[in-house]
Amino acid sequence: MKILIYILMAGALVLMIYNATQLNFDALLEGESKTAISLILAGLSCIILLLILLLSKKIEEKKKNS
């Protein structure tokens, strides 16, 4: 499960980097830049949720071993 979480986090990071290259800084909220910003935020929220899942798994392990 840990490996899958890390793979998903790496995939989200790669997609965030790719979308960062698609940004047009002259018009950030127009056209493809708007889509790229929303996908960067989606990738960031995905990473945050996966970190929360990873943390909850660690807490579950500690509680199970106690």
Results as ranks from 00 to 15, higher is better:
Ile3Lys: 10
Ile3Asn: 13
Ile3Gln: 15
Leu4Pro: 07
Leu4Met: 05
Leu4Asn: 09
Leu4Gly: 03
Ile5His: 09
Tyr6Leu: 05
Tyr6Ile: 04
Tyr6Gly: 01
Ile7Ser: 12
Ile7Val: 09
Leu8Cys: 02
Met9Ile: 09
Met9Lys: 06
Met9Glu: 05
Ala10Met: 07
Ala10His: 05
Gly11Ser: 12
Gly11Tyr: 13
Ala12Thr: 03
Ala12Lys: 06
Leu13Arg: 10
Val14Leu: 11
Leu15Trp: 13
Leu15Cys: 14
Leu15Val: 14
Met16Arg: 01
Met16Pro: 04
Ile17Asp: 02
Ile17Val: 14
Tyr18His: 05
Tyr18Cys: 04
Asn19Lys: 14
Asn19Gly: 09
Thr21Glu: 08
Thr21Arg: 15
Thr21Val: 11
Gln22Phe: 02
Gln22Glu: 12
Leu23Trp: 02
Asn24Cys: 06
Phe25Leu: 14
Phe25Glu: 07
Phe25Asp: 04
Asp26Gln: 05
Asp26Leu: 06
Ala27Asp: 11
Ala27Gln: 12
Leu28Ala: 06
Glu30Asn: 10
Glu30Val: 11
Glu30Ala: 12
Glu30Leu: 15
Gly31His: 01
Gly31Glu: 02
Gly31Asp: 00
Ser33Cys: 07
Lys34Gln: 15
Lys34Ile: 11
Lys34Met: 15
Lys34His: 14
Thr35Gly: 06
Ile37Val: 09
Ile37Phe: 01
Ser38Phe: 10
Ser38Lys: 08
Leu39Gln: 04
Leu39Ser: 10
Leu39Ala: 05
Leu39Ile: 07
Leu39Tyr: 00
Leu39Met: 14
Leu41Asp: 02
Leu41Ile: 03
Leu41Phe: 00
Leu41Tyr: 01
Leu41Thr: 00
Leu41Met: 03
Leu41Ser: 05
Ala42Phe: 15
Ala42His: 10
Ser45Ala: 15
Cys46Trp: 04
Cys46Asn: 11
Ile47Asp: 04
Ile48Phe: 00
Ile48Gly: 00
Ile48Asp: 00
Ile48Val: 06
Leu49Cys: 05
Leu49Asn: 03
Leu49Lys: 02
Leu49Gly: 01
Leu50Met: 14
